[in-house]
């Protein structure tokens, strides 16, 4: 069974992590000047870039404008060189379309869209290197980018995946672990209130085991929140130091 290989007899994963351990996270805000907000994140070998434009006037047909809140427009693309095999279609395929939709729904839940009626907020996510948890890295980068753009949100949105090896929950799956075919759970959390913005489970799982996986993913999201919060505070300190002089 594939699940047994996920965890060695000593209780370590293939890449040497413990079950609940996250991959190394490195993030930076405000990487580009053209955009209103931008951020770059590395979670292990997964590298994602998020850029935010807006809030601005509606582009395209005016009928798309919402009278009571802002329209959140998302686009998700993976570079052709981001995966082991070259991708033929970097964006516009079904998977990218689905992930863009998920991203939009996640951020509609977090951004205070009612503050900007009849306007549009663009969130573009580009995966530069894919090694599992692409959607999660995209969400985390987008959170930082939205903050960098100064758009008010209810809370951070932190996303992480979790899987199960037999009964042991694994946090933050890498690409080989995703490919092993065990159950996988993707969670986007607003950590302060513990509200779930998005939850996706893509395998058959007994109801009793959901709890453990959910808990592991939740803990991973809280750990990520701590890291992202540090990045934001550091960035603020830098910016205020520049303004202060």
């Amino acid at each position: 069974m594939a699940a047994t290989e996920l965890l060695s007899d000593e209780g370590y994963r293939a890449d040497g992590r413990r079950p609940a351990e996250l991959r190394k996270v490195r993030a930076r805000m405000g990487v580009f000047t053209q955009a209103d907000g931008s951020a770059y994140i590395e979670q292990g070998n997964t590298k994602a870039l998020a850029v935010v434009y807006g809030p601005h006037e509606i582009r395209g047909p005016r009928s798309k404008a919402l009278p009571d809140r802002a329209l959140v427009n998302c686009r998700y693309s993976m570079a052709t060189f981001s995966t082991g095999e070259r991708r033929r279609r970097p964006h516009g395929d079904r998977q990218a379309g689905e992930l863009a939709l998920l991203l939009r729904q996640t951020f509609e839940a977090a951004i205070l869209t009612q503050l900007y009626p009849r306007s549009q907020i663009d969130i573009y996510v580009q995966i530069l290197q894919a090694d599992g948890g692409n959607y999660c890295a995209g969400v985390n980068a987008a959170t930082l980018a939205v903050m960098d753009a100064g758009i008010p949100m209810r809370d951070y949105v932190c996303a992480s995946s979790a899987g199960l090896a037999e009964d042991t929950p694994l946090a933050d799956l890498s690409s080989p672990e995703e490919a092993a075919g065990g159950p996988q759970l993707v969670l986007a959390l607003l950590p302060a209130a513990g509200h779930i913005a998005l939850l996706q489970l893509s395998a058959r799982l007994h109801q009793e085991r959901l709890e453990a996986a959910l808990e592991a993913a939740g803990a991973a999201c809280h750990a990520l929140h701590a890291v992202l919060d540090r990045v934001v505070r550091e960035r603020l300190r830098e910016v205020t130091a520049l303004l202060g002089d």
Binding site: Q34, A35, H56, R59, R75, Y124, Q126
Partner: peptide, 11 residues
């Protein structure tokens, strides 16, 4: 030249 890099490009 994706729409990500500048507002002048459409997706």
């Amino acid at each position: 030249l994706p729409s990500l890099c500048s507002t002048r490009f459409r997706s």
